[in-house]
Design a protein around this nucleic acid. Structure first.
Lengths: 232, 232
DNA sequence: GATTTTTTTTATGTATGCATTAAATTATGC
DNA sequence: GCATAATTTAATGCATACATAAAAAAAATC
């Protein structure tokens, strides 16, 4: 699994450096909660954990700190950052703006309905997953839908920054997956968005996607608050 | 001059590390065109230039690469990235989205007209600069206006990412400063925005700021193209 | 002279050593 | 027993060494 997000940072080294390996592994451990929010580690601990020397670990922590996943606190440890409901609000506001830009770019550039096939397939997978009551499958398909949308926007910059912020909220999303209502509205929103994109209706695409993103945010934040998740 | 953007990366070290010093200095040299777009340097060259060993230089280049200012190409040098008019289009689209979010947040949270004094002062300075035909003074005040707006939005995340993208386009903006028309419209737009913010009119603030940003983008890109600046 | 192969050079990623300094621990005074 | 000062420990930032691999240069071949 080559982490595409690292690509803009170095120009296609054939072999993965230890720094890249460390960054990818730490990122994986953070979003999967293997390194829990709020926990701290010394560089030497992480180096032992990852079976490498301190130098690439240092480099990796600089990268991940810049991406908002952790905080480097000299002599007190590298702390995995947690997300509060207020943080979620803020990050979702940013994501909403950026994904609306992605939707706009897709609507403005779609050449044929065939271009949107990846979106339809993701939406199909979302529905199929719901039919067999597979929430994880649904979440994966949902994530895929959003990623395909951003891919279709055709901007590496946009993709990179959206991806960074998505990493920050991934853990909280996983936490709400089983406590949220059945996500039928979500699927409807996606179908409506696909239609607007097909028609090249830029304003409608923006509007629909904004509403979708705002309603998802509102739901998630109220769930976090209701269940007492002050930090995730 | 403590670079505030580095703050989220480390937790307030009192003394500036060599890595931070290197990042700040390289950033300064890039945006001021002292390290021209397209130029390449080996790590060892940069280390000599900055009078330090390779380690903090490596760390600094990782940071700056993540911020889109340069590209690390092993054995071929650290290349200072240039910006094409298409890149400008893309970056300005992103900045427009994010600054509209900032405007929205300010309009939604403004408690009294006094809160907006920094904006008024910046707008005043812009006008005073134009009166004495001081375009650099105008540009500095313009930049200050935008920065104060983002400050007032009260989101470090938003501030950080806007600032990152502003750095990427700074050189191109400097290039167009003397070839653009007298920027009277810009001042009018700012005054109108301040009024909308005072009234807490979220939708109007978004709309005005979006139009302002789009018109600035359109102007700048057409200037770059007209004058044959294919890469800046 | 052009192309290919071999050799040499050197830039990089990483490991490790070390000086500095912050945190932890111990000693002292009240 | 608690607060403060002194001492010790060890984490960090940085410098440097070194193995590796890529680029450059030289040599061989056609």
């Amino acid at each position: 699994m080559q982490d595409q997000r690292l690509k803009p940072v170095t120009s296609e080294p054939k072999a993965q450096s230890q720094t890249q390996r460390a960054a990818a592994e730490l990122r994986r451990m953070i979003v999967s909660n293997e390194l829990p929010a709020g926990s701290s580690y010394l560089e030497t601990e992480l180096a032992t954990m990852l079976d490498m020397s301190r130098t690439p670990v240092r480099e990796a922590t600089l990268i991940l700190a810049a991406q908002g996943l952790l905080e480097v606190r000299p002599r007190r440890g590298v702390r995995i950052l947690s997300i509060s409901p207020d943080d979620m609000e803020e990050i979702y506001q940013i994501l909403t703006e950026l994904e609306c830009l992605a939707a706009e770019r897709v609507a403005a550039s779609v050449a044929s309905a065939k271009d949107l096939q990846p979106l339809r397939e993701a939406a199909d997978r979302m529905e199929a997953s719901l039919k067999r009551d597979d929430r994880e499958g649904w979440a994966a398909a949902d994530e895929d839908f959003h990623e395909r949308l951003v891919d279709l926007a055709g901007s590496d910059r946009l993709k990179s920054i959206i991806s960074t912020y998505n990493d920050q909220v991934r853990r909280a999303r996983a936490l709400t997956l089983y406590i949220r209502p059945v996500p039928t509205k979500s699927n409807e929103d996606h179908r409506a968005l696909i239609k607007a994109l097909e028609k090249g209706d830029v304003q409608l695409a923006r509007k629909l996607h904004r509403e979708h993103r705002i309603s998802a945010k509102t739901l998630m934040i109220s769930l976090l608050r209701k269940h007492g998740f002050h930090q995730v």
